[in-house]
Amino acid sequence: MMAKAARAAAAWKTYREVTRPGSPPLMTRVRAIPRMLGAVMRGQYAGMGKGKLALMGLGVVYLISPIDVIPDFLMLIGVADDFGVFLWLMASLLGESGRYVQREREVIQGRLDEV
């Protein structure tokens, strides 16, 4: 029961962040994910460490792996753990990509201010 509440709270927090006025819109965040991942791998974006990136990678592997902590044949419980990992992964990626887009905007604005 507690895990459901935590997943719902994380989904609501992500929704509020994505829809906040002045915040990068959803599709801008989605398109920024590959740039953000590349910047993290090159060490050009300190906002997200390689450890968190590795944890997200493990989340992806868990989602596509046929091996689960809670087997899917246990109906709702088995699917719920996958859904929880999916929600965490999406919330993390969308939240972090929003911060990355804001950073990109600040860097561009800083360069324009120098000119």
Rank of each mutant, 00 (worst) to 15 (best):
A8G: 12
A9W: 11
L26K: 03
G38V: 06
M36H: 04
E96F: 02
P71Y: 00
I70C: 03
L94H: 08
G43C: 03
V60Q: 01
I70L: 11
K13Q: 15
M90G: 04
I108F: 08
A54G: 12
D72G: 03
L89F: 07
V69E: 05
D72V: 14
K13R: 15
S97T: 03
R16D: 10
V115K: 08
I33V: 13
S23E: 14
A39M: 04
W12E: 15
A5C: 11
V107N: 03
D113Y: 05
L26R: 07
W88K: 04
M2T: 14
E17T: 12
A3V: 15
T14N: 09
R103L: 12
G43W: 01
R105C: 00
W88H: 09
W12S: 15
D82G: 02
R29K: 08
M75P: 02
V115A: 08
Y15P: 00
K13L: 13
L55V: 08
Y45T: 00
M75W: 13
V40C: 01
G84H: 04
A91N: 06
D113A: 14
G49S: 10
D72H: 01
A46M: 09
T19V: 10
K13T: 07
P34V: 01
A32M: 09
Q109L: 12
G38C: 04
V107S: 01
R16Y: 04
E106T: 03
E104F: 01
T19Q: 10
A11G: 09
G78V: 07
I33E: 07
T28R: 14
Y100L: 01
G78K: 02
K4M: 13
R42P: 01
M2Q: 15
V30M: 07
A54F: 11
R111L: 12
Q44K: 12
L53M: 14
L53E: 06
V60F: 08
V85W: 09
P21L: 05
A46G: 10
M56V: 00
A91L: 06
R99L: 06
A9N: 12
R111K: 11
Q44F: 02
M1Q: 14
L74R: 08
A80M: 09
G57W: 02
D68M: 00
M48S: 05
L63Y: 05
V61A: 15
A32F: 06
P34R: 01
G47P: 07
F86S: 11
R35N: 10
R31N: 07
L53V: 07
V61S: 03
F73L: 04
S97N: 05
D68V: 00
G59Q: 08
V40W: 01
G47N: 06
R35S: 13
P21R: 08
A11S: 13
L87D: 15
G95Y: 06
I108Y: 05
E114S: 13
P25G: 09
L74H: 05
L112Y: 06
V18N: 05
I70G: 00
Q102T: 10
G22V: 02
M27V: 10
Y100Q: 01
A5H: 11
K4T: 10
F73M: 03
F83S: 11
M36Q: 03
M90E: 08
P71W: 00
R42W: 02
